[in-house]
């Protein structure tokens, strides 16, 4: 029984790893750009590696390196990271069903390697086939490896691809998420919440600086869903 569970976990780990390989390629390319910037700012190879392994959040790390000027503004950088990564609060909350019934230790170990990419890959499959938290972890290992490989190479040798934008790689993330979005569609009940999400995310991105739009759109849309009557059958009057 235990053996079965172990082989199943290993299998999930592997398929999670392979499912994220493609998106990991663009993660690596952007990593090399960050590596170059970090070297210019005087971050040591070891500091960058420590940052990759411990923070592991792309856009936050770009901002950290950007703000990396002596004397280091510790509080300002930490606050900036907090705001940029606030979306992980929602992303992690949405993973609750995947982790149902697992121990606190399991959660504490697995949650560190949650990035946008492997989260989306995992949730896209969650309701269609059997995926477990090992699938998520496998994807996290894949993305983390590509991120480290890219940034470390960039720091030592210069960017692998100097201008990823020329190859449309900046669009790779939007494209992957777009290709996955249909797996998240649950039917007509999603029409209004998704419309609200799109409008709020767009307005949020144009009016509020930073990454708040992800929270504004995500929470606004989900709140809409929570206030829509469950079915079309006449609801009993509120009592």
């Amino acid at each position: 029984m235990i053996e079965n569970r172990q082989t199943d976990g290993l299998q999930q780990l592997r398929s999670g790893f392979f499912a994220n390989l493609v998106v990991a390629a663009s993660v690596g390319a952007y990593g090399s750009v960050l590596g170059v910037l970090a070297a210019k700012k005087g971050l040591s190879w070891f500091e960058l590696l420590a940052m990759n392994l411990s923070v592991f959040a792309g856009s936050a790390q770009f901002v950290m390196v950007d703000m990396w000027l002596p004397p280091l503004p510790v509080v300002e950088i930490t606050l900036a990271v907090l705001v940029i990564n606030m979306r992980y609060l929602l992303i992690a909350a949405s993973l609750e069903p995947l982790f149902a019934g697992t121990s606190l230790r399991h959660k504490a170990l697995f949650m560190h390697l949650v990035a946008d990419e492997n989260w989306a890959m995992t949730m896209a499959r969650f309701h269609r086939q059997k995926v477990t938290s090992y699938f998520l972890l496998g994807g996290g290992i894949c993305v983390q490896s590509a991120w480290c490989l890219g940034t470390m190479t960039g720091h030592r040798l210069g960017a692998v691809i100097a201008e990823p934008e020329r190859f449309g790689l900046d669009f790779a993330f939007v494209a992957v998420f777009t290709a996955l979005v249909f797996s998240f569609w649950r039917g007509r009940q999603d029409l209004l919440p998704w419309a609200v999400t799109a409008v709020l995310a767009f307005l949020g991105a144009s009016l509020v600086p930073g990454k708040w739009y992800i929270l504004i759109g995500g929470i606004g849309g989900a709140l809409t869903a929570s206030f829509i009557p469950v079915s079309k059958t006449k609801a009993a009057p509120h009592g």
């Binding site: 949405s94 777009t178 998240f184």
Partner: peptide
Amino acid sequence: RFMNALPGTILLSLIVP
């Protein structure tokens, strides 16, 4: 219902802008 809708709305928020 809020939690069930959340994955889709987060992903859409990442894409649209």
